[in-house]
Amino acid sequence: MSTIAFYDQHSQDFFESTVNVDVSELYYAFLSNLPTNARILDAGCGSGRDTKAFIQMGFNVTAIDASAELAKVATDYIGQHVTVCTFDQIDPTLTFDAIWACASLLHVDASVLPDTFTHLANTLVDNGAFYCSFKYGIQDRTHNGRFFTDADESRLQQWLKNTGLIIKHTWITADARPDRENEKWLNAILIKAVK
């Protein structure tokens, strides 16, 4: 089963297990880099939790997800359409002030991540902010039917070479979900360099 098929099959369970998770500390680190009324791409929106929060804060948010079933659930929750597409299918003519990729890029194969980062960065304005998070580690693995690419600081740095993105800040957090406190996450704020 592919990772997308997993989310299609388990969309309701995934929604229920993530929609109420409090990640407000991550919001602060991200939003402090944004202009008022910023245009945000929620890349891999999952349950729609973060898109809804950003809209309620007054931001203009475009949400995408590769799982059609999860996109349906998120659309209902947000009250705004979620586009079904993969990262590399994003319309390159779109422009955003910021990209939010919370626990989503970790499903992209490590060999493809440099191109994925480049494609996403091409939709960002100069000095635009890009938040991403990965499970902390250096493995590529399949777990419970989903593929994961883990990252540490040096792995992330390697992927970002020649993408136009530079690391502003990284930090490690514990998983915010109950019973997952022992799982560590690498969080990063990236900035698109001015050409």
Rank of each mutant, 00 (worst) to 15 (best):
D42R: 09
D109I: 10
Q80F: 07
C85P: 04
A101L: 05
A5T: 14
G44E: 01
I78P: 07
A98I: 00
D179P: 08
A121K: 09
H10F: 13
A38K: 06
I55Y: 04
L113N: 01
P178L: 11
F30C: 00
I40F: 03
G48I: 05
T149I: 00
V108L: 07
T123D: 02
G145T: 03
F87L: 09
R180F: 08
A121G: 07
I90Q: 11
Q12D: 12
T118P: 05
V19I: 14
A121Q: 01
F147G: 10
T18R: 02
N37E: 15
T116W: 00
T3C: 07
M57I: 05
V108P: 07
T62G: 06
L186K: 01
Y77W: 02
S154T: 15
V108W: 00
A176H: 12
C132D: 01
L113I: 01
V112R: 14
K135F: 00
N182K: 14
K192W: 01
Y7C: 11
I55A: 08
F59I: 06
S154V: 12
H119L: 08
Q56S: 15
T36P: 15
N162M: 13
N60S: 15
A110R: 12
S111M: 06
T163E: 07
W100L: 05
L190H: 00
L94F: 06
D65Q: 09
V19T: 10
K52Q: 13
N33M: 09
A63G: 10
D42M: 06
R141Y: 08
D76R: 10
I64Y: 09
D126P: 13
S17T: 11
T142M: 08
T3V: 04
Y27S: 08
P114S: 07
Y131V: 08
P178C: 03
D152F: 03
K195P: 15
M57H: 14
T149N: 03
C102F: 00
I189M: 05
L105R: 04
F117G: 06
T116A: 03
T116P: 02
E16D: 13
N33S: 10
L41F: 02
S111N: 13
N187Q: 04
C85N: 09
L105P: 02
Q157Y: 11
V21S: 05
T83Y: 10
T75R: 08
Q56K: 15
A174Y: 03
A71V: 10
H107F: 01
W159R: 05
